[in-house]
């Protein structure tokens, strides 16, 4: 079992990555940040990630497409969706397609950390790592 949780974060808003990278690194995550979902897809093909955090509404490739792509590659990777406009329909679609959770913007870094902790637990990481 690895020590660090491998996290990939995609959001076309640069500030999201800038703020979340240190916030997640702090709790023992190895974070890679992408603004361009296409670049992120390339990286996913290269490397297996434990958790992927993705915005839903992005140009070119949206979060749902990314989710589908990830699950084709590796079923166990947990995908956490974040969205600026959370409708029930969207949440249902994301969950039906196997998203681990869905977080509505605006959120606090701790909100994401909690969800990541749950995901890590589900993946079999020790609780204290992400406390």
């Amino acid at each position: 079992m690895k020590d660090k949780i491998e996290v990939l974060l995609v959001d076309d808003e640069a500030i999201v990555g800038n703020r979340l990278k240190p916030a997640l690194t702090k709790i023992g995550c190895n974070v890679e940040v992408f603004e361009d979902p296409k670049e992120a897809l390339k990286r996913i093909d290269e490397k297996e990630f434990d958790i992927i955090v993705t915005d839903i509404m992005m140009e070119d490739v949206n979060g749902i497409q990314l989710l589908e792509h990830v699950h084709r590659e590796s079923e166990w990777t947990k995908v956490i969706m974040i969205t600026g406009f959370a409708t029930e329909a969207l949440a249902r679609e994301a969950m039906a397609k196997g998203a681990f959770d869905i977080i509505a913007k605006p959120f606090r870094p701790s909100d994401l950390r909690e969800v990541i902790a749950k995901a890590a637990e589900a993946l079999g990481f020790e609780k204290k790592t992400v406390a």
């Binding site: 500030i15 999201v16 703020r19 509404m57 600026g84 406009f85 913007k105 605006p106 959120f107 606090r108």
Partner: peptide
Amino acid sequence: VAHELNNPINNIMLTAHS
């Protein structure tokens, strides 16, 4: 509008908490 507004608010929220 929700999407458009939530993005900057989210950025403010994340930055303020950081």
